[in-house]
């Protein structure tokens, strides 16, 4: 059990650091790369929790497609590669304060609900289980997601068309 905890803390540290860097770096490309770190940490956490399916989907979909899209976005908009001017607008410190407050309330809500009982890390969940759940229990959202992708497709085409 100890190994898992240690692993968890390492990944958690990576993710937190990555997230903070994403927010604070001036250079956009750096931000994208830090995001990759956060996502990779997330995938590792999923594996730790025994959910290979979600972990690998995350790795492929997110890190593979989403970040690449971001990089495209950055390229296309010819955003300056080197650090830009001061990126954060002036209301920086009140924002920080509000964030801490919000995080505090959420943390309290979690602790209050579950106290300190350790989550028993049972055997990893096999993908078959998720598969049949999706196609039996959640069939309708699956259909609707198809419609969603269609809408996104058309949307992207409409926006990208040379008028």
């Amino acid at each position: 059990m100890v190994a898992q905890n240690v692993a968890f803390w390492i990944f958690a540290a990576f993710m937190a650091a990555g997230a903070i860097r994403v927010v604070t770096t001036d250079n956009i490309v750096h931000a994208a790369l830090w995001l990759v770190l956060v996502l990779a940490g997330g995938a590792a956490q999923f594996i730790l929790l025994g959910q290979e399916f979600v972990a690998w989907v995350q790795v492929i979909v997110y890190i593979g497609a989403v970040i690449v899209l971001f990089l495209f976005g950055i390229m296309l908009t010819r955003a300056p590669m080197e650090a830009e001017e001061k990126l954060n607008n002036n209301l920086r410190w009140p924002g920080l304060a509000a964030a801490l407050l919000f995080a505090g309330t959420l943390a309290w809500a979690f602790l209050d609900q579950w106290g300190s009982d350790k989550i028993k890390l049972t055997k990893p969940v096999r993908t078959k289980e998720i598969g049949d759940l999706v196609f039996r229990g959640y069939l309708v959202p699956f259909e609707v997601v198809g419609v969603l992708l269609l809408a996104a497709l058309i949307g992207a085409v409409v926006m990208a068309r040379k008028d």
Binding site: V22, V23, A79, L87, N89, A99, F102
Partner: peptide, 15 residues
């Protein structure tokens, strides 16, 4: 929360 504050503070659309 980090994500939320980031969104509110950053000015660049992509970030």
């Amino acid at each position: 929360t980090i994500g939320a504050t980031g969104l509110l503070l950053r000015r660049n659309a992509i970030v």
